[in-house]
């Protein structure tokens, strides 16, 4: 049996004195596309924060390739790509300069040139246009161009389809499928229905604590 890339064991997370989820077990194998579902406020973004190591406020275990994530954070981050609901794109800079920075802070690992990545997301000819001239959807595409650039194995995507047109969504799904087929994995949240067949869904609602203590229980 192949080893899971990411494994969550009995993960429990509490925020603002409220338990968001507990006993969350999940194995993400190479080739998996996992969609994290649940209503607003159920902890989707918090879970993504844990997976991107921006928050370490959890109980339980997160394993990366079988060993605790805490002990090999750098190795994990080196193989992680995160596209958040904020694009992370500087409006004063051009798409090319933005991606340049992105490659720089990620050690310059690159699978293709910046030009071809921008071409893939339909921004051919916009390479040197300052981003404040671009529309919201185009800004989003600049952020998504990183999916083409990165050699990362783990993709964590927070609402990647926001402000993207239908054709773009289809292309993005193809890209994810291709990435998964190549041995990578994708974890994403989205409120849109995905037409991909091989999506594993995990509903955070199921991991909500069964009964919460309230004063009425005792009095």
């Amino acid at each position: 049996m192949t080893q899971p890339l990411i494994e969550l064991q009995a993960l429990r997370c509490e925020r603002d004195e409220r338990v968001l989820f507990e006993n969350l077990d999940l194995k993400v194998m190479p080739g998996d596309v996992v969609q994290i579902e649940g209503p607003n406020g159920c902890g989707k973004t918090t879970l993504l924060r844990l997976l991107t190591t921006t928050s370490t406020d959890y109980e339980g275990q997160i394993l990366w390739c079988g060993a605790p994530l805490k002990d090999q954070r750098l190795d994990y981050l080196n193989k992680l790509l995160y596209v958040g609901h904020l694009p992370g794109v500087k409006k004063a800079l051009t798409p090319r300069e933005n991606l340049d920075w992105f490659c720089g802070v990620n050690q310059g690992h690159q699978r293709c040139t910046i030009e071809s990545a921008l071409e893939e997301v339909g921004l051919f000819g916009f390479e040197d246009v300052p981003c404040h001239h671009l529309s919201a959807g185009q800004l989003r595409r600049v952020a998504l161009a990183r999916l083409f650039l990165t050699p990362a194995r783990v993709w964590v995507l927070d609402e990647p389809f926001t402000a993207i047109d239908k054709q773009g969504v289809r292309n993005l799904e193809n890209l994810m499928a291709e990435h998964a087929a190549g041995g990578g994995c994708v974890l994403l949240t989205t409120h849109q229905d995905m037409s991909m067949s091989a999506v594993r869904k995990i509903n955070l609602e199921e991991f909500k604590p069964q009964s919460e203590w309230s004063a009425g229980d005792i009095v």
């Binding site: 004195e17 919460e212 203590w213 309230s214 004063a215 229980d217 005792i218």
Partner: peptide, 14 residues
């Protein structure tokens, strides 16, 4: 005040 939701504090209050 921080543990007000736990069982032991609520039992104490009762």
């Amino acid at each position: 005040s921080r543990e007000k939701k736990t069982r032991w504090v609520q039992e104490l209050a009762v």
